[in-house]
């Protein structure tokens, strides 16, 4: 090998060390700073945990309201994007044809490439528009954030359904007709159950994406000190937004420690969802590999 090739190999080794180094630094730093504050006090502050959980006693110096807010928007985003995304994926994979199919898949791709801040701006514009026309006193809040986050993760749901369905082996597609099922029945009873793990894997991944996004919620109703949301139209706190505001305007070392704790909690949550999605995906691939 020439010197040039040796240099090239050395450079590749150097580059390959970078991701590991970055991840070790990130996780190590967060653990060192945040490990000490990881306890019930981080979540609930001085409020008794059971009171905060079941009697909605306000929590002042804990991140429980932020966790709860994130949970709420993720559930709302799921309610909107899961049915819509799965149905759209089925349409793309099983029914759409020709030019309509091209248009539809282009729209989904475009939506997938949309910067999340645009989805937030869309929600913000929607509220401005409603204020000028139908509902003069609507404001940003939980429901709007959930809606916009749902739109943000919708393309992921569509693509997950689409790829899971279209990667099924051919003999499964023939099984339905051979049993005398029509197309709809064979989708319902054969194709969807077979692709289930792949679809659920995509679903979990997109919920993780909805949980971590900050740009959408900061334009659509997340605020720093809202406490627990009382209705769907209320302002709320959310973990990613909490982390962002801590970095920007923390006052005391305790604030900062809670920020590290919150970052650690969010990281564990999204990584956990990611690993779950990964395992489901692998299970699906293993099952249909012969195809």
């Amino acid at each position: 090998m020439t010197r040039f090739h040796r240099l090239f190999s050395a450079l590749c080794w150097a580059c390959a060390l970078l991701p590991g180094a970055v991840m070790l630094l990130l996780i190590g730093f967060l653990l060192r700073q945040g490990w000490g504050s990881l306890d019930l006090h981080l979540l609930f502050g001085d409020t008794p945990p059971l009171d905060a959980l079941f009697r909605f006693v306000p929590v002042w110096d804990g991140i429980w309201p932020a966790c709860f807010g994130t949970l709420c928007v993720v559930v709302l985003a799921g309610v909107i994007s899961i049915p819509l995304g799965i149905l759209c994926g089925i349409h793309l994979s099983e029914f759409a044809q020709g030019r309509f199919r091209d248009i539809l898949s282009f729209c989904v791709d475009l939506l997938a490439g949309m910067p999340s801040i645009l989805m937030g701006l869309f929600g913000f514009a929607l509220i401005l528009f409603l204020r000028h026309t139908l509902l003069p006193d609507v404001g940003t809040g939980l429901l709007l954030s959930g809606f916009c986050l749902g739109l943000l993760v919708l393309p992921y749901m569509v693509n997950a359904t689409y790829t899971s369905l279209s990667s099924l082996p051919q003999d499964l597609r023939l099984l339905g007709p051979s049993l005398g099922l029509n197309h709809m029945q064979s989708i319902r009873h054969i194709l969807l159950p077979s692709a289930g793990k792949g679809i659920v894997s995509g679903l979990v991944l997109s919920l993780g994406r909805a949980a971590e996004d900050t740009a959408v919620i900061m334009l659509t109703g997340a605020v720093a000190n809202a406490g627990m949301p009382r209705s769907l139209f209320d302002k709320y706190e959310a973990l990613p937004f909490y982390i962002y505001t801590t970095a920007a305007e923390y006052q005391t070392p305790e604030d900062l420690n809670r920020g590290f704790g919150a970052a650690l909690v969010l990281l564990v949550m999204t990584t956990g969802l990611f690993l779950a999605a990964h395992l489901l995906h692998q299970a699906m691939e293993r099952r249909w590999r012969r195809g």
Partner: peptide, 21 residues
């Protein structure tokens, strides 16, 4: 595998750590 894991790290966590490191 590390690269795939990196995709699951929230952007705001990258930002947060970068602000302090």
């Amino acid at each position: 595998w590390t690269i795939k894991l990196m995709t699951s790290v929230p952007t705001v966590v990258y930002g947060f750590v970068a602000v302090f490191v």
